[in-house]
Amino acid sequence: MVKVPEPIERLFDTVPIITYPKEEIIDHIDQFYFEGENKTNDDSFKLGVHQVIPYQGSDERIRYIPNDPISLGYALWLAHKNNLKLPTKDGKGQSSNNSIIQLSYHAAPDQQLPILIEDSNESRNIISLTAVKKSDHTNIESKLITDLIDSKFIDLWILCLLNEHPNHIFKDEDEDDLFHLNKYYNSYEVANWKAFKIRYPNLFQISGTSIKTFYKSELKSFNQNLQLLSSNFINLDMSLKLKLVGYVIIFDKYLSDTEIGIIIKNYPSLIKSSYKLLEKY
């Protein structure tokens, strides 16, 4: 290996002669802070979701929740796990170190939300929450239900986005998108979420009818699965319960005119339990 001559090395070590402090970053980003203990240490997390919308519960308290079922499930789970409450201030006040931020899916490493941004001291870690992962449940029943929610339900959500185009859930659609340019782009990107297009290539090779037919058949099995989950709701593991609550609330309250929303309406007891659970946070 070539060694740098000593005089040059000494010269390199001397410069820069003066080092000034770092340049300040003054970009402001709206964050919806979870309510809870304002810890003094540097560890914190941010949940990156499409959009945050206000939800007024029966207790008249306004909470800010993510507007898609998967992100809402994770927001509830993070609140539960860290002993926090859902955000109640519209991005202005800071009530804990942890928050929810609105992002475009283009911000995520694999172009899909939600993502978890973990800050610890000077380092930051970004985790995609929808990435395929192994279930850590030892109980076979919980394992099967986790797989059902983490794969079958997410596939159904993707199918809903591709068939019914509820584009208002995306961040960029919220801006004044005059030409609806994103609508077409979103459909293209959504098909790649969770490697959906790779797993079901035949749906995209033939005309658009095959994807509709597949959606209908998946809706049927969703109805059957929901029947089982509804009857067993009390016995479900908390993480699974909260994930399911995410679907129930978003489709009942904000996407009620979609096919999934119509099916969910047939389970009033599940809806009631879901709202009750949400209002705990």
């Binding site: 941010k46 992002l103 941004i117 961040k171 005059l178 994103n182």
Partner: peptide, 13 residues
């Protein structure tokens, strides 16, 4: 990993 980049990612006209 910058929050500014994450926040500004996406579509803009």
């Amino acid at each position: 990993k910058s929050l500014t980049i994450l926040n500004q990612s996406g579509s803009q006209l």
